[in-house]
Each structure stands twice: as C-alpha cells, then as structure tokens.
Design a protein around this nucleic acid. Structure first.
Lengths: 250, 250
DNA sequence: AAAAGTTTGTAACGAATTGTAACAAGGGCA
DNA sequence: TGCCCTTGTTACAATTCGTTACAAACTTTT
C-alpha cells in the first residue's frame, strides 16, 4: 500500500482498459503529468480499486472483457459521483453518444492524442471541482543540491550529468525530508514523521537502514558521507546547500 | 560551441527530417526565434551532427529513410540524454504513444502549428536543462592554523601535506570550538557547551578525555602539547594563530 | 493465480565512538 | 619531602551506528 503524503499528486486517476499496453503507457504519461494513477483490466478490478482508493476520475474503455464499459459506466453512476472519461474507438459514433447518455462526463476517441486526453481530464476535474485544475504551487518544486536535481513533482532525482537515479518511494520521501530541512539535525522520530507523515510507535532502526541505502545511491563515497551526516545520539543532518527553483505551470 | 546562458532559452537544435522543405522551413522559423539550428536528412547525418556539435535538443521525424525515427530515438536514449521531440503524422497514434515509451520527451503531430512546436521545445528545454548547481555558500568556512586546514563545511581536517586526519564527530566539534575561540581559556563547561550545544549537568571529565584523544591526533608531541594547552584549574586554551579563509565558489 | 522481482523491515554482528573508573603523574605549598 | 588536588592516560564498559543477511510485504509478469 503505497501511500504518498509528502507531495500529493494533482489527483488519483483510475485507468480501466483491458489493453495492458495502453494502461502502462497512460499510467506513465499521466504520472509524469503529476497524477497518481491506478490501472484496472476489467470491471472487477475497477470495483476493487474504487473501494480501495479515493479515485478522483475514472478513464474507462468502452470495450472490456465481460461486462463492457457502457454497463460499467451506468452501474458506476448509480453508486458514485466519480467523474468518468470514456475511451471509444474511432467511428463508433453511436456508442459515443450513448456514452454521454449513460453518464460519462466526457469521451475521447482512440487513437487519441495524450495531450488532448490530458486536457479533457483537467477540464472534467475542473468542472466537477474535485481538484484544482492546475497543479498547485508546490507541485512543480525543483530543488538543487550539490550536483543533484530533485524534482519533487515528478518524484525523480537526476544527477547534473543527466543520469536518472532510481529511488524507491521510501527513499525518495526520506531524501525529500532531508532536502526540505537542510542543516537541521533531524531525529529518527522526526524523519519518520516527515517521510511517512505518521508518528510511528517504537524507536526503530528503519531510518538507519534507509539512510544507509540512500547514502549508497547519492553519496560519492558512502563510507565518508558528505550529504547526510550522522549526529551521534541526535539523528542525521543534510549538510548541502539547497537552492529552490519554482517550475512554471506547464 | 554552446553557451549555457540564462538570458534566452536559446540553444542548438538539431532537426532530423527527410523532407527538405520541412527542414528549411523549421530552420528558418526556429532561427528567427533565436535558436541555432542544424538539420539532418537521415540517421547517419544525425549521428554525425551529434558528434560534431553539442546539441541541446533533437527534433526527430518519426518516418525516416533507412532506420526510422523510433529506433533512432531508442538508440539515442541509450547513449545520450539529449532531449528529443518527436514529429509524428496525424493518425499514427500508436506510434505517437510509443514515442513516449521510447524515451521522447515530447511529441507533436504534423501538420503542426510552429508556435506550438516552439512552446514544446521551450518546455522540454526548461524541464531537462541542467542548471549548474549553486555554489556552496558560507558554510564553506575554512580555517588555517599551524600546518592544519580545518574545513568546517566538509567537516574534515587536513594536514598541509594533504593527509586527511580522521576525526570523529565529537572530536571535530571540540576542535572547532577551540579553533573558533583561539587564545581564550575555555572551561570544561564552556567547551561542553560549545562543542555539544548543550549544557550538561554534572561536572565531568569527558572533556579531559576528548582533549587527550584530540591531542593524540593533532599534536606533534602529545606529551608536550603545543596547540591545546591546559590551564590548571581553569580549562584549556588553543594557542595557535588562526587565519580565516572564505572558500571560493567551486 | 502462481511466479519472479522489488522494496521495506528485522535481527544480528561488528566496528567505531564515547563515557567511567582507576590509577599514575605532576604541581603547588607547608 | 610529603600531602592534597588536578590532569593525563590506560583499560574497560556501554552506546550507537553501519552493514549484511534474511524475511515479510508489495508489485509486476506470466
């Protein structure tokens, strides 16, 4: 259950399509645009996802194995007010209109232009007022330290030579906590709180491990760490100078 | 030769398209917009251009004679991080999305609005351009005394011959306290305070131990200490002459 | 749904660091 | 010199941290 608290995405989308490729590509694209994306291959998975998460918008393929998208759309509307964008296939004009009839908030024909889909998603989200239309101020935060560029919105870390460093969620959150509180000694409890957003019960050594792993990825020489230094009996400090850069709205 | 300057997002673009007209038109337009533009008609020319110049962004047509744009895109991504904007033809929707999958940073469908292309180029350049990291600020305080160089920012101590002396955190802090208060008699309480930032309760002999250990590491002859001298009944004094040096921006 | 691959958390061991105790050494003063 | 007091040093014990190995929890693939 990955729960991201540090920087909430623009919204949580659910893509329902039986074509795995489409799911993957859409997930990648929309994630890059700042959304959190969950995918489902059929109606069952969709129901489950909707039960498990608070979904802001559903992108629903018209043709699905088992129960088709239209019926799902209808069903959904009976039980929920979640906005729906239907994916239809070029030429199925009738179905398209039916899609509207059956409660979809918008539709888009496959093959589609991802940017157009994005625009529709934003428009629907805006209309339904679930989420502010543009990514909020914090989303585009980009931070520099040493030779690193940390894009909080995109949740990625690049070296200045351009190589992308692969950080897991937990690693990213921890690093973000450090970078956003440079030159402060952060106790393990504080770090746990900052990185997970939760106050965990017992004194743990999770953080130690996490720090160790993080150091392996971002320190030149992990044995003599420059960025994350340990304060015996206190916690850890991030010692680099951090410069903030505000990314303009896309 | 390229310039990394802040005034304009201008840069050196490489347009790869087998359609000579497109190349010419794009070159004219983009040049007017302040970019330096090189064109290539196929993959071979592209490779050569990339070798000859420092290209900031590649505009790559999807359909090319010989090796097509997609494979080129993939290849390029393996060897370089240069941003890529793909040109696709309306209707090649699958390829379009695949372009994303294969590492393009953005794409635009032909026929396109030049201004839209311009906007995409700028956006990609902004997203991907690496700004040199900010120099480390005042934290780079460096202090000299005798034959030693104490880098407070890097928390390391070097001998003038370059050998690095390995100090533990507590040792470093204690030394820093001394070096930053030269020629002052510092009581044990003061030292405790300066080095740990805390006022500890009972009178201890911790400091004595630390001083002893520090002397072993930095004194030529620990039995007859020159740098840290003890003041009987008072504490310790750091007697060396200290010169401050502000570290230049890296 | 099983399997393979990731990521995260636990346990444990070893190493480094720091504090305590004990005693030796040295200084000042009668 | 001999006695008290302070400091230096050694030995040892107690923390604390880094890291490896492994298990549990999740994800993604098949």
């Amino acid at each position: 259950m990955m729960d991201i608290v540090a920087d909430t995405p623009a919204g949580h989308l659910l893509v329902v399509d039986d074509d795995r490729d489409i799911c993957v590509l859409l997930k990648r694209f929309l994630t890059r645009q700042g959304f959190r994306v969950t995918t489902a291959g059929d109606g069952g998975e969709m129901i489950r996802a909707l039960a498990d998460w608070k979904i802001d918008l559903v992108i629903l393929d018209l043709m699905l194995p088992g129960k088709d998208g239209l019926s799902l759309c209808r069903d959904l509307r009976k039980t929920s007010r979640v906005p729906i964008v239907m994916l239809t296939v070029m030429g199925e004009e009738n179905d398209r209109i039916k899609g509207f009839d059956d409660g979809a908030d918008d539709y888009i024909a496959k093959p589609f232009n991802p940017h157009e889909l994005l625009a529709r998603i934003k428009a629907v989200l805006y209309r339904t007022r679930m989420v502010p239309p543009a990514p909020r101020g914090g989303t585009g935060r980009v931070l520099w330290f040493e030779n690193w560029r940390l894009d909080v919105g995109l949740r990625c870390l690049k070296s200045s030579n351009g190589t992308l460093v692969d950080l897991s969620t937990a690693e990213f959150d921890l690093l973000a906590a450090f970078v956003e509180h440079p030159r402060q000694v952060l106790s393990r409890d504080q770090l746990l709180d900052l990185a997970r957003g939760k106050v965990e019960i017992p004194f743990d050594r999770k953080i130690d491990m996490q720090v160790c792993r993080l150091r392996l990825k971002i320190e030149e020489n992990p044995k003599q760490p420059q960025l994350i230094q340990t304060v015996r009996g206190g916690g850890y400090v991030f010692t680099a100078k951090v410069s903030h850069v505000e990314k303009p709205a896309a």
